[in-house]
Write a protein that binds this DNA or RNA. Structure first.
Lengths: 168, 168
DNA sequence: TATATTTAGTTAGCCTTGCTAACTAAATAT
DNA sequence: ATATTTAGTTAGCAAGGCTAACTAAATATA
């Protein structure tokens, strides 16, 4: 990890005083999401794949055949990391690389039938664990969670909320 | 990663037919949480810490002084991994290890002032990005998300939903 | 009490995952 | 026709993951 240095003053505990109203929600939502994924991540052991491989595989399965660079961007890693990751997934028969006909520099990665199967089994296990928890809730709460999930999806989907100073 | 082999039959696409009602909610919630954290993770670069270090540090900050083994369990890694991670965090002045007085085998890890500061700045950046997205929502939706977050916290908090066959 | 077992953590040594720098090859601009 | 840009790879290093084997403290047992 490159050593980037920080300097800052604010050492105070998180003051609930002057924070805008959306911060409280953001805060709770943030830690809720972390805890949620942490809790269901234990199911991933059963897939026989490491975290990075499983994550890349699911992007490939859902995202259709996509170029190496797009995969690297999605996984927030540098190209060489993806080169190797995909090589290994290919060696294991989970994905294939196909040369793009229009632009012969790009390689599109797509999942094999087996890759799709492995990934969906994994997702099924995760979701099943989560569903087990939801089953205990009253239907009203489940409904609320479902609506919230839609909102979050739409929030996180198209692009990250533009960092301050981005021209429209 | 140890190579654990899977065998399974169900190759069919996810059939929406016979799935219990909680599965739909679980499904959406699952991918929403993934997308959410993926989107705000970009802020972590600014901390100068890698993902694993930042994650361990936040468990230490929030979880108070806690034994190496507890940290390993929380991070879902093996003890040797934590030994090294903590050694490096300590070298960087972010945490300290203190020998427990009662049981002199255990080492409790706690954050230094600087560790706490680095971690909280990081969290602030993440939450700020999320809050920026929330600000665009109508207050009713924000309210709904806040309530949902509470539910999720309670769901994921105490322990993972017991795996099938666990005696009460 | 003395010995055996269990528990907490570390060390050694191996792969995997991340990076940057430097390269090849195709597409595009000059 | 040449120069630049873009997509991906290779090489080589640091960090993060593991298992196996160890030390030391606590606890159980003979």
């Amino acid at each position: 990890m490159p050593q980037r240095r920080r300097q800052s003053a604010d050492t105070s505990a998180s003051s609930a005083s002057s924070a805008p109203p959306e911060f409280a929600a953001a805060n709770t939502l943030h830690s809720a999401a972390i805890r949620l994924l942490r809790a269901i991540r234990v199911e991933d052991r059963a897939s026989g794949l490491s975290g990075p491989r499983l994550s890349a595989l699911s992007v490939i399965v859902f995202g259709g055949p996509l170029p190496m660079a797009a995969l690297a961007a999605a996984e927030q890693v540098q190209p060489p990391t993806i080169t190797r990751l995909v090589r290994e997934l290919e060696r294991d028969g989970l994905v294939e690389r196909v040369r793009d006909a229009d632009d012969r520099r790009v390689l599109r990665v797509r999942a094999t039938a087996r890759g799709r199967q492995v990934m969906e089994e994994g997702r099924r296990r995760r979701v099943a664990r989560l569903a087990a928890g939801l089953k205990a809730l009253p239907p009203a709460d489940r409904k609320l969670l479902a609506r919230a999930a839609e909102l979050i999806e739409r929030l996180a989907r198209p692009e990250p909320p533009a960092p301050p100073g981005t021209p429209p």
